[in-house]
Simulated assay, not measured.
Amino acid sequence: MMVLSLFDRFSTATHWLLASGIFALTLTALLLLKALAARQLERLRALHDYGFLAYLRELVSSTRISFLVAVAVLAGLTQLALPDRNQKWLQYAFVIIFVLQAALWGNRALSVWLDRSFQSHKASNPSGVTHLLVVGLVLRILLWVVALLMVLDNLGFNITTLVASLGIGGVAVALAVQNILGDLFSSVSIALDKPFVIGDFIVVGNYMGTVEYVGLKTTRLRSLGGEQIIISNTELLKERIRNYKRMEERRVAFQFGIAYETEVEDVERVPGLVREIVLGSGELVRFDRAHFMAYGESALQFEVVYFMLTDNFNKYMDVQQKINLGILRELRRHGIAFARPTRVVHMAEYARTGDANVSGARSLPAQAAGPAPEMLRHGRRQ
């Protein structure tokens, strides 16, 4: 019996020595592997700064010593026959350390993604930085909640009741702050879909202005009058948004009328004159058409259509002014008159007798009587 007891003690000591050796070798190998990986990644970054290398560097640097020690301890314990109770507690400890380490890896990867997104949005869309902060916060909360639930589940807790309680509580909170959450998700939708960015000139319903700020709850416009217009993000997305900053070219259509007394030859000449005026108004103009469109109530109506190859409103107005002056100049040079609303009043019987009570004659107010009777006798226009 004494020999067997000594043999058991020797065997146990041997197993402990073997477990200690495996632990030491495993921990040393893991530390060397981490240092080597970090050095190689830094060398590769100096040669080629690929995007995925940033993720790998953060994963290596965020690997905790406690995790490496836990892996080494687990490797060494494979040589020992421990009681079931001790193995169970060791398993719990390892699960906790592994889940926390996985959460740290995910948190670092998320940080790298947010940093790279910040840099890309800083110049093109500064408002996107605010939304990325919200997205990052939400993703981090979800990451650590999932990690906590996994730890509790592996420790033997019944998380079904906990998840149900969180669900009921979440519904209650969501109902209480549904307006705020609606604006929050609308701001995230604006950040992801990008219907507009800061600096764009937009029209929303009856409001128009330049986007100055896109926040978590509201969007702020600077109107043409100078005042600031603050619109809820939820209400903003319910309206149809017209973004003039993204207009590649502007279609311009306008009309003018000339007098009915204009000769037919002059009427035929007008579309060609307008075409030459529009084509000569600048390189940013593309002529489309000019037509004698219709017989108006008091004018021969013409319609002109051209395209501005820029979204700049001031340049458009400069070109339109140049075209208007050109049309005015050319029509006057050719003796073509613009139409004005006119009315012809025939008062032949009144002009002959001078009696306002003659049957069939119309009685007009003094201010509408117009020129002298001798002018009306000849059918002159007023």
Rank of each mutant, 00 (worst) to 15 (best):
M2S: 10
S5Y: 04
D8T: 04
T12V: 06
T12R: 01
A13L: 08
W16Q: 05
S20Q: 05
T26G: 13
T28G: 15
L30I: 11
L31A: 02
L32D: 05
L33F: 12
L41E: 10
D49T: 03
Y50K: 05
Y50I: 05
L56W: 15
S62F: 00
I65C: 05
V69G: 07
V69W: 02
L74I: 04
A75W: 00
T78Y: 07
N86T: 03
A93K: 06
I97F: 02
Q101L: 06
R116Y: 03
S117P: 04
Q119H: 09
H121R: 08
K122V: 05
A123I: 04
P126M: 12
L132G: 13
L132R: 13
L133Y: 01
L137V: 04
V138M: 12
V138L: 11
L143S: 06
V145K: 01
T161V: 09
V163N: 05
G167W: 07
G167I: 06
G169K: 04
A172K: 00
A172L: 14
A174S: 13
L175N: 03
N179L: 01
G182R: 13
S189Q: 09
S189P: 00
F196P: 02
G199V: 07
G199W: 08
D200W: 12
M208R: 12
G209P: 01
V211D: 05
G215W: 00
I230R: 03
R242Y: 14
R242D: 08
Y244Q: 14
K245D: 06
E248C: 10
A253T: 15
Q255L: 10
Q255S: 15
Y260C: 10
Y260R: 11
E261F: 09
E261K: 15
E263N: 14
D266M: 15
P271M: 11
G272F: 10
G296C: 06
E297F: 15
S298Q: 06
A299I: 01
A299M: 02
Q301I: 15
T310D: 03
F313M: 09
D318K: 13
L325F: 12
G326D: 07
G326E: 06
R329T: 09
E330T: 15
L331V: 04
L331M: 11
L331P: 07
G335I: 08
I336H: 06
P341Y: 12
P341C: 03
R343C: 02
E349Q: 13
A356I: 15
G360P: 00
G360V: 10
A361Y: 11
Q367K: 11
A368L: 13
P371C: 01
L376N: 13
G379D: 12
R380E: 15
R380K: 06
Q382A: 07
